[in-house]
């Protein structure tokens, strides 16, 4: 089954700026896909459309459910989004409350919620920190915690917006491992092309709200001319 199917998807911000233009793509269940492109190319906007947070025009189906008012509740259970800034994702007094926020909204039983929180914390390596305030965590820990807030909801598709930005080597490595061992459908946006080389099989190149090219990691991240013409450069690992 297709995890995401989009046909002629368009989105304009309230001030009239067109962020997405005629996006058509299909992403299979279990695929790991990176959306790359220069700043302002529409990558993050595309991610926020995946669970109905932003509503555009055109066709968008998530696991066969067309995006509309009736299906949005089901789609939100299926798609978890981790936003770029962890401070936007963590808004409760303690980490436990932040991570339990999603499962509680899914109307899970209290005991199940406690188990889900513990599993999510274990998954990102923050076990024992549940009663800490997010304010007292380092940026890297906050980033991992924001992933845990979504992981605890067990969505079928996880969308990560710039998961490794501003991270030190150790936390970046933890996130790379987490993506690698995850069997869910993962769509991520990033400027960290080296991380994409290690984690994804497919890359979709966005520029000015449109898809420039959709192909394998080999086809896109090894093509220096294509990357340069879209304000990107070869991953460091591929540079001579």
């Amino acid at each position: 089954m297709e995890a995401v199917k989009a046909e002629n998807l368009n989105y304009s911000y309230p001030d009239g700026t067109r962020a997405l233009r005629d996006i058509s793509l299909s992403i299979g269940d279990g695929e790991k896909v990176a959306v790359v492109g220069p700043n302002g190319s529409g990558k993050s906007t595309f991610l926020t459309m995946l669970n109905g947070v932003r509503k555009g025009t055109g066709l968008l189906e998530i696991f066969g459910h067309p995006m509309n008012r009736e299906n949005v509740k089901v789609i939100k259970q299926l798609v978890g989004i981790v936003f770029q800034n962890p401070d936007d994702q963590l808004f409760c007094p303690t980490l436990f409350e932040d991570i339990s926020f999603g499962p509680l909204n899914q109307r899970k039983a209290p005991e199940e919620v406690r188990t889900l929180v513990e599993l999510a914390l274990r998954e990102v390596g923050l076990i024992g920190m549940q009663h800490r305030s997010s304010f007292h965590l380092s940026f890297g820990e906050r980033k991992l915690a924001s992933i845990a807030t979504v992981a605890a909801m067990y969505p079928s598709l996880i969308a990560l917006d710039e998961p490794t930005s501003n991270l030190d080597m150790a936390h970046r490595r933890k996130i790379i491992h987490w993506v690698q061992k995850n069997s869910k459908t993962i769509i991520l946006t990033s400027h960290d092309l080296d991380m994409i080389l290690e984690t994804c099989q497919r890359v979709i190149l966005f520029n000015k709200g449109s898809i420039v090219k959709d192909g394998t990691v080999q086809e896109i991240l090894h093509d220096e001319a294509l990357l340069t013409s879209n304000d990107l450069e070869l991953p460091l690992g591929l540079q001579k």
């Binding site: 926020t48 947070v53 509740k73 798609v79 978890g80 936003f83 999603g102 909204n105 899914q106 909801m153």
Partner: peptide, 9 residues
């Protein structure tokens, strides 16, 4: 947006 995407209604 983050709250809404985690099912807040």
């Amino acid at each position: 947006l983050a709250m809404e995407s985690r099912g807040f209604r």
